[in-house]
Design a binder for these strands. Structure first.
Lengths: 131, 131, 131, 131
DNA sequence: GTGGTCTAGACCACT
DNA sequence: GTGGTCTAGACCACA
């Protein structure tokens, strides 16, 4: 499914969150399809089940998955979620942070703008938009 | 010079790094000018000198400052840092991921574009650019 | 009769209890009228008969229904349930606690009053009252 | 500080959340004062430190406390929090649930209204309002 | 078999 | 000493 980077400064459960989120967001996992069980995924990743569960809990809190007791964990449909300002702010903050990092690296203002405009256009092709 | 947010979940030494980077990148501290000493800065910020020392070490490793034994710590010229295409690609990838997440959350294409334009402009004000 | 929310974090047998209670309290099911059998209801709801059985047991324990061996399960008359002051005090205390939390969150007095008025009216429509 | 009810159907970490929240909301713990450490509280309550930490994490998420790494956990000032619609909805939902329970117990509509109005007035005296 | 909770430890970074 | 993370188990209710 994906691999963990044990040397990363991100904790394991954060990596699990990011990886699953990416799989969901880019459409690699279909809506309402079942995720691997906590136990199975923990075995595959060779980590403790509690760690995986912590990730699942957070993913549910953020509205990416839902759990059905005794059945498993499933991917949310996009349409079912109302646009959540908190999430928008959170992600916008992450982008700002990354843009600052671009400046730190030494990218000029114009280049940053080009990068952002490029992303706005390309990501639309793959990620789609509301209308 | 700047203020720390003790409540932030970023550790103090990371905040020190980020703040000094910010000051350097936006030009508030000129190239080759001297930074406050570890002892002075630790007093101003009311933190342990070890914490400041750790931040300076990391800033030096990242090529933002250099130390002259017995003299102090100084800011590197921007040109001395070569623009690292690999880093740019990595960060650009992260931003793309975040933008996909925005689409998934339900943000429309136009809104995403507005957000990106807003960041491009605001981050320039505070984060500065190469030219 | 009613619908289950498999995604709810309330267990199914609790949902069955709540829904039947609701139907009884608002008068949708008359006193002494017969409830669907465990088997029938479990088919309609597409759940395990044991789950429905468990709900009926609990509803009987709480005094909402009674069973006649070989005949079926029936709804108790409202008057047969005595109003329990202790329970009222307990639940009232919980509501007071919630209201304090609203104030702490920063809701103004007027808004709290509006919220309470709204609940008093809406819950009557669906939840019903004694007379 | 408070006591746990091991026979309650609420899990331990939920009881810890509710108890601490109540202490904060009714003003028993002053703003910016330090809560017992995770380890200490876990000893007092005779539960596992992880259980207490789980409660603290959720309390922080809901905006009642904040943590300072290496220092401890502290109570948020009310003024620092912007009114959070999500929290209002959550608490309003809890009140609705309790009101339904009142109807179930057999309280008449008029009595429920009286109870709610009484709470609105009394809780204002102790809990205070925004203006 | 599923997720949810909990225990009794451990190690880490930070203050 | 503080919170944050993680492990390797265990038990529970539920389906």
């Amino acid at each position: 499914m994906f691999q963990l980077d044990l040397r990363s400064h991100l904790s394991i459960y954060e990596q699990v969150i990011d990886n699953i989120k990416e799989l969901i967001v880019c459409g690699a996992i279909e809506a309402d399809s079942k995720l691997p069980s906590v136990r199975d995924l923990s075995k595959v990743l060779a980590v403790n089940p509690n760690t995986v569960q912590k990730s699942f809990k957070e993913l549910e809190r953020q509205g990416f998955i839902y759990t059905v007791a005794g059945k498993g964990t499933f991917v949310c449909k996009r349409d079912e979620k109302e646009v959540d300002q908190e999430s928008i702010d959170r992600v916008t903050g992450l982008i700002e942070q990354n843009v600052r990092e671009l400046y730190f690296i030494g990218v000029s203002r114009n280049e940053v703008e080009e990068i952002l405009m490029g992303i706005a256009k390309n990501s639309f092709k793959t990620g789609g938009g509301k209308k």
